[in-house]
Amino acid sequence: MKKVHFYILSLIIAVLCLAGCKIQTVEQYNNQNADEKSINASNENVIPVNGKNQDQQSKKTIDNSDKPTEKKQNTKDSTKKADETKQIDINSENSTLNNEKKEVKSSVKETKTIALKKNANQEKQQTQPSEKKSTNNKTNQAKKETIASKNNDLNKSNSTSKATDKKIVKKKKKYVTISVRVDTLLKAENYAKLEKPLQNEKYVPKNGAIVTTSKYEILSDDDTAWSITLRALKEHNVQFEYEGAGVNKYGMVYIQGINHLYEKNAGPLSGWMYSVNGKKPGVGCDGYNVKDGDQIVWQYTVNQGKDIGWY
């Protein structure tokens, strides 16, 4: 088997050598043409025997001379084609390089534009929250200011309303005092004048006060000594009896009895009389409009007011 392989390899090598020998280069071809030219030139120097031979010889020379030119032309064309193919290849390579450069440039531009867009978007995103924060802070500040102003206005209004209320309260809250007393009946001679059922501490208290000094608010400008007296007697649950202004001959309210003590129970000149600030008012109790600080005192008189300081 080894010998067979050896022979096959030797045959392949021989074939390749023969094929290589047949390959003719351009230089060999040019040398061959030069040799042929020299042979043709030597043939032209031979003297022809007759005209026919001469003509034939000339035709041969002409034919032979045309052949190398055609061969030369073929070689030139082949070299031109080779150069053209090389130039085409170079141009194609240059075009491909230019295209690659253009693609690289375009890709670089695209990357730059993308980066710029990203940076712009990032700046917008950074600026937008800051703007939003600033706007939110401004709106919050405005809201706080409005709320503060509203609170200040409310406080002012409340303070003014309180001040007005205080003023109104001061105007309305006017007071008088009232008391109902039987000090004259504490004397023995006057006390003895009473009927035996009335000679009792229930009707004539030892301190002489049926209603101790009490303070009452003046509710309106129409309050009178009589309206204050009614309030005091009702509040202290004291029995009383009176005649209205249209009933008696005096044309005013007339109190007939308080705490079961009536007029003339202690003599013909006995009965109830009132004073304001220690003085005789000169009008009936329903005709006297009270004032702030007035002191109203009802007393039981035995001598028609002389014993209580009226005269």
Rank of each mutant, 00 (worst) to 15 (best):
K306V: 12
P68D: 03
A192N: 05
N248M: 01
T69Y: 05
S38C: 08
I258L: 08
I255K: 01
D307C: 04
Y250V: 09
E263A: 07
N91G: 08
L154T: 10
E100I: 12
N31D: 09
E241V: 14
I218A: 01
L116A: 08
L18T: 06
G309P: 02
A19D: 06
Q199G: 01
L261R: 00
I210T: 01
A120Y: 07
T75C: 06
K162S: 08
H5W: 13
G267T: 09
V211W: 00
Y311C: 11
K162H: 09
D222Y: 06
K109I: 02
K234V: 11
I147N: 15
K86T: 10
N30G: 05
Q256A: 10
V290W: 00
I178S: 02
S227R: 06
H236P: 02
I62P: 02
Y203T: 02
K3D: 13
Y175S: 03
S161H: 08
Y29P: 05
T135A: 11
M273T: 04
S159E: 14
S220N: 08
K80L: 12
I62M: 08
D63V: 10
N53C: 14
K117M: 14
M1F: 03
E217W: 06
E70S: 10
S275C: 15
D307L: 04
Q304W: 04
K196M: 04
V302L: 06
Q304R: 10
